[in-house]
Design a protein around this nucleic acid. Structure first.
Lengths: 224, 224
DNA sequence: GCAAAAGTGTTACAATTACACCCATGT
DNA sequence: ACATGGGTGTAATTGTAACACTTTTGC
């Protein structure tokens, strides 16, 4: 009477640091695809919500705690998993550089960040899932302010600019970009500056979520 | 070892006719929610793809064959189904008026179209699913030419205009709208006219998919 | 004092909006 | 001939894109 379809969740978690977009992968300990890199994830248990399952798997497998998570797509094609019929609900997550750096010290856990330009061969159909996630990231950055989820709470404007340059894959005009972003009134300029290396120190900004949601409710839409 | 989560698919199928957006619902024959209206759908069998399952269920329950179908969202919250843990992959579909009219003759099948402004109480969490589908329809119509999937193959321009007026919920300027759509070069004007009632007869247009895909590949984006 | 990154304004061009009259048909 | 819906152009405004120099710091 029960159908024997099993349900998993997988997470595509992106991080950004120093001009590179990276994705979090884990090395599989067991067959199938033993020792292959794969997206973190696993079977959903009967008494947990899907989001709970992803969050749990992520924490268990990678120690990373997420600050933005949304559902990506559900993959259910016959034959996508060699263990039988397995349907996977994939999620899309973003973390701030802090999480990113923590990992660099705990590499031994078979967890690693990979530059999305230099990906290894992946288990199952995880290459497809990742491809769709990258498209979503690129598409979404343009009309929703998710970029801020990839930056520290306080960031110099140039970080935001570099992030967009990287994600869009083209140069953007600094003056026009600044004008546009500031005109949206969702950034607070702090009374704080940073100077990394030579050059004029930069003011720090922070993203004002309340302001954003207020504007969104009024129908004002974020768009780059 | 198997987890006892069961998987269903549900379809939110929209149709458009005479200035009204309608959704296809079925009346449930069995418990739970016997005699309540619900989205067409049902359990996925082990040897079929998710899309196959939706298409099959739709055909079985409503006789409607779909011409646009995409995955909407996966609903997996605990307690959403009184029969135990059931996760549902919802799909979003559009049909042309032909399918719409056919149904009007076969009402006895416990299948009916409902104006989305006048919905009955729905079974399970189908009201939530439908709400998300309506948002998707509204959002998507602006930057992808899915509107054409709701019209006959050949249609007068005013049909398209009325459809957009309905979906956007506001008046649009006929001249500007026409200019914009025609400038996208995805409509073919046919050597054919229709006149329904009094007034000047209207030229018929058809949507040129090949042209659209070609333009899309070149990076030219449809946007209203 | 010079190299390096931050910060700023103006002008040309493109896109969007607002707006009103003539045309072809049915009755 | 008149009521009804189809079809068209222009001007004002707004938004986008292009473009280069000054400022503040570290070395």
């Amino acid at each position: 009477m029960q159908n024997p379809i099993r349900l998993t969740v997988d997470a595509v978690v992106f991080g950004y640091d120093a001009g590179k977009i990276s994705v979090l992968l884990v090395k599989r300990k067991y067959e199938p695809f033993q020792d292959a890199w794969a997206l973190p994830g696993g079977f959903v248990s009967e008494d947990e919500n899907l989001e709970e399952a992803v969050t749990r798997e992520l924490l268990e497998e990678t120690g990373v705690s997420i600050n933005y998570l949304e559902q990506l797509y559900t993959f259910g094609k016959l034959g996508r998993d060699t263990r039988g019929r397995v349907v996977s609900v994939a999620y899309f997550g973003l973390v701030k550089p802090a999480a990113f750096r923590i990992k660099a010290a705990t590499d031994a856990k078979e967890t690693s960040w990979f530059d999305i330009q230099k990906l290894p061969r992946l288990a199952f159909d995880h290459d497809k899932i990742l491809k769709i996630a990258i498209e979503r990231l690129r598409g979404k950055i343009i009309y929703e302010p998710i970029g801020f989820e990839l930056l520290d709470k306080k960031f110099p404007f140039s970080d935001l600019e570099k992030l967009y340059t990287t994600l869009l894959g083209r140069e953007i005009d600094r003056r026009n970009f600044r004008k546009k972003i500031l005109s949206l009134k969702v950034l607070d300029e702090l009374d704080e500056k940073v100077s990394q290396g030579p050059g004029r120190p930069a003011s720090l900004f922070s993203f004002n979520k309340e302001r954003y949601f207020k504007l969104k409710a009024e129908g004002i839409i974020f768009e780059i």
